[in-house]
Design a binder for these strands. Structure first.
Lengths: 137, 137
DNA sequence: GCTTGACGTTCCAGTGGCGGGAGGGTCTAT
DNA sequence: ATAGACCCTCCCGCCACTGGAACGTCAAGC
């Protein structure tokens, strides 16, 4: 049972991919429980802490907010969870993503059309500026 | 020539769609020149200020950052501008948008696939949580 | 044993683009 | 005279960090 590897924040960071500053920040927010400490007051992390950090990192990579991640962690730790609750969080997040993607795409297309019509030479005429100075469409 | 309508920040806000707080904020940032003042120290805006505010608002709607807008305003005001410079800013912004859209879409698809595989019932098993606890892919 | 450098600690400030609210002054209508 | 709708400045909070200052701790090399 030498699996009980306990490490400082630097190793925990390297193992989880979460920067030390960010780990402390999550702890301060209450997203993580206050870490155990070595005798010298350095924070001490074990494998289960690393697991949690990786979970958070993956969830961040998928665009979940820290608030959503807090809920996800609660479900993750709860063996009697209903997958329904996880799925609901995921679907809500997907809906947000769809909304953002649609908005960005609309903007992108508008701008691409304006840019297409702009000669992009040494002359001052430019449909992009013309459009911007118009009253709100 | 009664076009020289001069108004307070509230009217300027209503005419431009930019909230009063935001107008003051832009002024503080230096994006707008300090407004003229009435005798009572209230800020005074005329039609050309409104035009600028509308320009900023439209540019924000198109997702430009305030820094980019600062450059756009410079070009907008410069009669000797080259449309090339405007187009370059626009194309750079489009590239950013494309990047964001691609990333969000990738995330969305990953999450949608995980959600599809999640039963979403009263049982705890859930591929979404399973995925999140895995080492970084 | 002493220094050096890489860690770790806390606390404070800044990012972007605002919004909320406190605590006041001003103006208009009743 | 007072109510209410404006306006003013100033500071705090949001989100998710990141950077830096000023300091403590530890292992390695001379």
């Amino acid at each position: 049972m030498r699996n009980k590897a306990v490490m400082t924040i630097g190793k925990a960071s390297a193992s989880s991919g979460v920067p030390p500053k960010t780990i402390r920040f999550y702890e301060e927010l209450g997203l993580l429980k206050p870490a155990e400490r070595f005798a010298n007051r350095y924070r001490a992390y074990d494998e289960s802490n690393i697991q949690t950090l990786r979970f958070i990192r993956r969830a961040r990579d998928l665009g979940f907010s820290l608030q959503e991640i807090d809920k996800l962690l609660g479900l993750y730790r709860n063996r009697r969870r209903a997958s329904e609750d996880v799925k609901r969080l995921a679907l809500a997040h997907i809906a947000e993503l769809d909304h953002k993607i649609a908005e960005l795409t609309r903007i992108r297309d508008t701008l691409a059309e304006l840019a297409r019509r702009c000669r992009g030479d040494q002359r001052p005429e430019c449909p992009i500026l013309d459009e911007l100075e118009l009253p709100p469409s």
